[in-house]
Every structure is written in structure tokens, then in C-alpha cells.
Nucleic acid binder design. Structure first.
Lengths: 184, 184
DNA sequence: TAAAATACGGGACGACCGTCCCGGTTAATC
DNA sequence: GATTAACCGGGACGGTCGTCCCGTATTTTA
């Protein structure tokens, strides 16, 4: 066991984490670590001590969100309408991506792998979502032959649609297309 | 007007273009220009003289393919089944992307813009494809509210599905989903 | 075949970025 | 309030990559 962090270290860590979350969400993963340090008002060394690599920083940012999304998915797991549960969560993920460019980059880019967080069940979004998919398929609401890789690709497509500018009408249209496309 | 290129310059230019096409297709746009020069057996200066920037090199590579795809689309423009014409070309584009990682990178990444080639009608793939879309919509075979940005996003999704490994079954499944999703 | 124009090769340069390190500082402990 | 351990800041380092330049080589022209 290690001793608790010193008070200033705790403050800085939290501050970096928050700034990183906001920055990655707004501008994507291409933002330099130096820039995040600058915005957080700390030195680059402080960032890299708490988060040895850029990937570990982003992973830490993602973990909180992931846990929340897994809870959302789990809540829908007992829904009366399995199809609605699945598509509702799909819609939720599109919203999440629209508000988080970093997530989109991680999903699209070959660089970062946000499946790395799946080791812990409480962060395994794809696993939780996969259960919704299975239920929907068992209930006959979703094509039986699709898998989560297909779903992930369709999500990537929906997010790609709004890369340049957020467009509620286009989002609704894409969701309608996916919904019909995936229907049994 | 400028005088014709010297014979050796013509040879080198063609050689670079061919090597670049193969390399970008196989490995994507992240391949360094130095590497393309090396594989073509020329110096980096020779590449950058013919193609001042990496983007201009890729654009030159793309132009040939684009012209061919536009012809393919135009051939389908008079098809008896407007819906089939559109979806057939969609399928054609998915195949193209599967065989050309550079194209996928250009489509997905914010870096390169392959719409830049659209200035010349004979290279305007989206324009030609858009005419197929319109005909399909007028014929009642495709949802009336979708636009080419939606189509492009769905294409990106289909290509995303095969990023890690080519999978004919998954490709057919994705196409079926898109086909149903876009149906009127 | 000699002179002039053109092109070649590949090293150099500059920009960017992630990571590491060290002299100085601050918080915890007694 | 002094000692010690932990932490901070930000410059330095190493790597990558695109672009440019210049001494040399080759082709074209007369």
C-alpha cells in the first residue's frame, strides 16, 4: 500500500483530470499534453507524474464516464421493451459522442483503445450494451445476425455525420435509419 | 504554357504516382513521404518537386480513381431500377474503401479533404452519386429526407466495420442494414 | 559535342509532441 | 519551527515527419 497523496498533489490531480475531460471532449485527442498542463495551471511534469502517458490520462478521464454509461445500460436491462432499451441506449451513446470529441476519436482512431477499460465489468460498456442487444434479438425486435462490431460501426457512422457541425435533425434521421436497418 | 517534362522526370513522376497509389491503398495516409520516395527508388526531393505537399500527392493519386468511379456512377444513372442503381454504387464504394485504406483515412480523418477534387465535374464522385440518390428518391425507393452527408456517414460506418479485418459476411450484413435503413 | 537548361539525391532544417529529469519549493511530521 | 519526504515547474531530450535547398548528374538543344 502507498500512503495517501499529499494535499496539493490531490488538488492538482483532480484539476488536471477535470481540465483534460473538458479539453478532450471539446477538442478531441489531438490536443497536446502541454496544452492541458497549461490550461490546468500546472507544469507538464505534474501531469506526466500522475498520468505517465497521454493514453493513461485519457483512460482515467474515460473511466468515470464509462461507469456511468454502464449503469445507464444496466438500468435498461430489465425494460419491458427490449428493442426500445437497445435503441434508447444507442441514442444515448450518440448524444455522448456528440458531446465528447475525444470519445469519437478513440472510437474511430486506431491509436487509443477504449476497450482497454473493459477489464473491469463496471466499465465494460460494450459488454453491457451487448446484453441489451441479445435481449432485443431474443425478443425478435432486432435482426438476429448482427453483432456488437456492427453496432459499433453504425455508431461510428452516426457520429461521423455530426463531425463538422451538430445537427439535431440529421441525428434524428440517422437514428431512424439505424433503427429501421437493425429491425428484425 | 510550360514545356514538356524531361524524359527522366516523366518516368520518375509516373513511378512515384504508382508507388504512392499502392502504398496509400495498402497502408493508409500515415506512411511517411520519405518511405514512398525510398520505395520508388528516388530521393525525397524528386517527390516534393513533382508534388509539393503530401496532400497534393494523395490528391493526384485519387484523381484517377475518382474519374473511374464517376464513370461507374454515370453508367448507372439510366438504370431501370433507380434504387438498385444507388445501392449498387454504395456497394461499389464499400469495396473501393476495403481495397484502399488511404481513401478511408481521407473519408474519416479531418486532415485530407477529398472533396477538393470535386471542382472538376469528372472527379466529383459525391455529385454523381447524389444524382443516383435523387433518382432513387424520386422513384420512391429511398427515404426522401436523406442527403449525401447521411450517405457518406453510413459509408464511413460500413468501412469502419472492416477496419481491423476484411470480412465478407460482415460487409454483406452491413449493406443489408443500410439498404433496409434507407428504404422508403 | 559543347553549352545550357532541367532534374536528381538526400541531407538539413524547423515544427511538433510525448516523456523524463533536476533544482527549487511546499506540505507533512515530530 | 525545523527536518524530511513528497511534489512542482518547465526546460531538455529524442523521435517523427514534411518541406526546402544545393552541389552534382543527366538530358536537351544548338
Amino acid at each position: 500500500m502507498s500512503r495517501p497523496l499529499r494535499a496539493d498533489a490531490q488538488r492538482n490531480r483532480a484539476r488536471v483530470l477535470q481540465v483534460a475531460a473538458e479539453t478532450f471532449a471539446k477538442e478531441g485527442l489531438s490536443v497536446p499534453v502541454h496544452e492541458i498542463a497549461r490550461r490546468a495551471g500546472v507544469g507538464t511534469g505534474t501531469v506526466s507524474r500522475h498520468f505517465p502517458t497521454k493514453e493513461s490520462l485519457f483512460e482515467a478521464v474515460l473511466l468515470e464516464r464509462m461507469a456511468q454509461l454502464v449503469r445507464t445500460a444496466s438500468e435498461r436491462a430489465g425494460d419491458d421493451e427490449p428493442g426500445e432499451a437497445f435503441f434508447g441506449f444507442f441514442s444515448r451513446m450518440v448524444e455522448e459522442g456528440a458531446a465528447n470529441k475525444g470519445l469519437v476519436d478513440a472510437l474511430a482512431g486506431a491509436g487509443y483503445d477504449f476497450h482497454a477499460t473493459a477489464a473491469d465489468p463496471s466499465h465494460d460498456v460494450m459488454g453491457a450494451w451487448g446484453r441489451l442487444l441479445r435481449r432485443g434479438q431474443d425478443a425478435g425486435a432486432i435482426r438476429a445476425d448482427v453483432d456488437m462490431a456492427d453496432v459499433k460501426a453504425l455508431l461510428a457512422g452516426c457520429l461521423d455525420r455530426e463531425r463538422d457541425a451538430l445537427d439535431p435533425a440529421a441525428r434524428a434521421r440517422m437514428l431512424a435509419i439505424v433503427r429501421r436497418g437493425l429491425g428484425a
